[in-house]
Design a protein around this nucleic acid. Structure first.
Lengths: 240, 240
DNA sequence: TCGGGTTTGGTACTCCGTACCCTACCGTGA
DNA sequence: TCACGGTAGGGTACGGAGTACCAAACCCGA
């Protein structure tokens, strides 16, 4: 019972007991007892038994929101990718806890539900931001909504994919994770080309060619000829 | 106490009470009492209070699984789209219940979690199927996994998008929903079309440039210099 | 040392979910 | 007709999560 914070003591006790006896077999009374506090204190610090496991997504979410508010000039997909990277790093920050949590969420259905729901929160925030950013462009409202949602889902899915692979692989370095993240987000960007904007990044997709000079030539033509409407006909798209 | 099934009597009583007093204010005893059965019977028919609200996804999922097992020749995205259409129609089948359920899931967080989790089950099944179908093609295993997951997520997202819009719009006809579904899935297919057989698509992402010649030059250099590792340094990536 | 506010522990309660037992009903066979 | 076994349903008891509320301890300045 060192002078650490009560919340941290409770969390440590909880993770210990969950590892020893499993989640369901551990009662809140056990946790409070081992932490040396009363049961009331537990529920004062954490709203529920599940809360002791999960990190404070609210804080990360708040940082993301304010970042979104500021980054109005940036391309929306890049901004969302940045936000997602932020989330990923919040997991990487304490790898041990993340791994223990992962083991628990795999074993206990209610915890897995909770995990999924928290990810959905991010997806919702991403969708809202992308949609607000897209409002300026033309297009059917319903279709715009769908596109925003697809983008948000893709980013979150890619994030989770990278995160899960890291959690399963005990030997992966942080650099490996970051590289995998960038590759995954590249995969996302490749499919959700950006609509046009002033200083927006340029995404070009060229199918069926591998020679650099040929590709470069196709890219130039694509950029000159305009929008992404030809992409389906010619297998080639450019969206400046 | 008509000769209806016990489960149906319970469900009817539950929806009535939820509409009258809300979900949390309604206890299982209330439901059992109004249905004219004992509390034990409720928990024998439904494993939990939440279960009385949600449809039998297991049955739909089972049908999907066997359909997947049979449709080995079809393109995976089309097969998954078909499966998703099946799910959508299972909701359309009893529209009233679906709408009541929607109102409840919006109001009660725990129900929303459950709803999301059940959708994730479909996404998992889709991902597994797409992944098994993709195995025959070449490509990095990790990237294949990611692509399968992105596809599955896109299909489920599009499905949910259409479903939610229908649930919110009381005047939409079934034909409208079907049309919206096909349009949404077309949007998905446009982004996750199958790669060409011979040469994989080349994706180049260039940030911060708009002049075609400059971009083309950067693309040529990126393709010559190799893989996606430089993406962060130069703000430029190429993945052949 | 006193008084007011905050923190913490304790108690009692509701409700969900489980385990277990008991009864009523049903058909079958002697 | 009676005995019997199986099964669906009802009742009771219990453990644990979460809530409400109260009492005690602690802190801190006056």
């Amino acid at each position: 019972m060192p002078p650490t914070d009560v919340a941290e003591r409770l969390r440590a006790a909880a993770f210990e007991l969950f590892a020893e006896q499993g989640y369901d077999a551990t009662t809140v009374d056990h946790i409070a007892e081992r932490a040396g506090v009363g049961r009331s204190t537990f529920f004062r610090v954490f709203r529920a038994k599940e809360d002791v496991i999960f990190p404070d997504h609210e804080q990360v979410l708040a940082r993301i929101e304010e970042r979104f508010a500021a980054a109005s000039t940036e391309h929306s997909l890049l901004a969302v990718t940045d936000a997602s990277r932020l989330v990923l790093r919040s997991f990487l920050a304490d790898a041990d806890r993340a791994r223990e949590r992962y083991a628990l969420t795999r074993a206990v259905p209610s915890l897995r539900q909770r995990e999924i729901a928290s990810m959905q929160q991010y997806q919702r925030a991403f969708r809202e931001f992308i949609r607000s950013w897209m409002d300026e462009t033309e297009g059917s409202a319903a279709l715009t909504d769908l596109r925003a949602e697809l983008m948000a889902a893709a980013v979150v899915t890619a994030h989770n994919h990278v995160l899960r692979h890291w959690l399963r692989d005990p030997g992966a370095s942080l650099d490996d994770v970051e590289a995998a993240f960038e590759e995954a987000m590249g995969e996302v960007r490749a499919r959700f080309a950006a609509p046009r904007a002033a200083a927006a990044p340029v995404t070009v997709v060229v199918a069926g060619a591998s020679d650099p000079d040929t590709v470069a030539e196709q890219v130039r033509r694509a950029l000159r000829e305009g929008g992404p409407d030809q992409s389906r006909r010619s297998g080639l798209s450019a969206s400046p």
